[in-house]
Nucleic acid binder design. Structure first.
Lengths: 232, 232
DNA sequence: TCCCACGATTGATAATTGTCAAGCCAACAA
DNA sequence: TTGTTGGCTTGACAATTATCAATCGTGGGA
């Protein structure tokens, strides 16, 4: 069995501590596939047949109801998605589509559940992963319920600035239409929100963002570790 | 060691499958306490010293930012809260207060983590619990981002109706001010939302709700299992 | 009993956000 | 080059939601 394509999966925190034989058992039924951009990988409501691992590219998790649609999260390498549905053997709550050309590993859900039942280390790793995911969503919920759209955008930009290295200037990492959906607003409103932040020291040139007055901008945004920190 | 007060904890899915000795170890450091209404049990940002188990009464999980406050969930017997923070040894993301007189068990977080490391069954039970919590928050997120306040209220009432047994008439289970916060709106708007639902077959008399035209009401609310079902 | 406190409601108004339509602009293909 | 496409922006307007102030009504305490 060629385990070289699975090397990077093995190194994920989720899989690194489990027994060799169990990892092999998981990989036996797994396969890696390349997808073009804008392919719908899973559809909400369907049974969760595979645990997905994004090896390269990126994936948009979204949901629709009553002709409306919203982006809930972006999955970047290397991490998994729909772990909770896989473990509970419950239907997907979100749909997923590739944002760009992506390489994705598919691991049969029933294999994941089988190994989960016999490998304590795997179970513990899953706990850590799920706890992380849970806390991320709680933060998103607080962001959405406690802040206006202008505040959400400002804090998003500060987070993105940090992710990009902390420099005064940085680039948005996805298109504004999607950013708007992630932030829970329309594309038109996002446009206006960018303008609304200019008085607080923001410059926007296409996808290029510059925070000209960091102190003033942060005074407006009031970032909070319990909402905006990725790690904790 | 008197295990009678811990009997009901042992019966929780979270604790029922673990080894006797590990459960005993957990209970050794645990204690049960009675709290009056409106007592703040934990404060967001603090280290997570105890896993809490609500034995009776009810608890409000809420969060504040920039002088605003929002309710995120209600914990009812018999279940735990802040499991994720305990496991990750990370600060609380939410504060908690009793809504009424409540009996609550406190289990030292470090004990929970210690047993988690050695008891695979406990780890697996935690996974199930966390996956459930995660999916609940995702549903709440979808509710918030995809629906207007009128739609959120309508679907909340349908959920509450089901919880109350499915009869045409039922009671709200907490005060409207808090319901408004849970639904992400102001108390004033909730008042108007109740009126706004009357044309679709709703009658409100104080805390008493009657859905006079179930079909019409559901046609408006468009409930969806992937948002509104508690179980899946 | 009366009075107070507090939640719920209502009205008036403002702020925020969404919708629709049109125009702009850069990327891309013929 | 030219034309087309799709995302972004802008303006005008409408809908939604929040804010502020006042009032109502009920339940508990003096």
């Amino acid at each position: 069995m060629p385990d070289s394509p699975f090397r990077e999966i093995r190194d994920l925190a989720l899989f690194s501590q489990m027994a060799d034989e169990n990892f092999s058992a998981l990989m036996r039924g797994a396969y890696v596939q390349n997808f073009p951009a804008q392919i719908e990988l899973i559809t909400e409501g369907n049974p969760s047949d595979f645990l997905h691992v994004v090896l390269s590219g990126s994936v948009d998790l979204f949901s629709a109801w009553n002709d409306r649609e919203t982006s809930l999260a972006t999955v970047r390498p290397i991490s998994t998605f729909i772990l909770a549905a896989t473990i509970k053997d419950a239907p997907y709550l979100m749909s997923a589509r590739t944002l760009e050309k992506s390489r994705i590993a598919l691991i049969p859900s029933q294999d994941v559940r089988a190994v989960f039942d016999i490998d304590g280390n795997f179970a513990r790793a899953i706990v850590t992963e799920l706890a992380q995911c849970y806390r991320s969503v709680i933060k998103a919920q607080k962001d959405l319920k406690l802040r206006t759209s202008l505040e959400r955008l400002a804090n998003y930009l500060l987070r993105q600035q940090r992710r990009a290295g902390g420099a005064e200037s940085f680039d948005l990492d996805f298109e504004k239409r999607r950013l708007a959906s992630v932030l829970g607003m329309t594309a038109e409103n996002l446009s206006r929100a960018f303008k609304g932040l200019q008085p607080y020291g923001l410059e926007v040139d296409g996808t290029r963002i510059t925070i000209t007055n960091q102190a003033e901008f942060e005074r407006f945004a009031k970032p909070n570790p319990l909402i905006d920190d990725g790690s904790t």
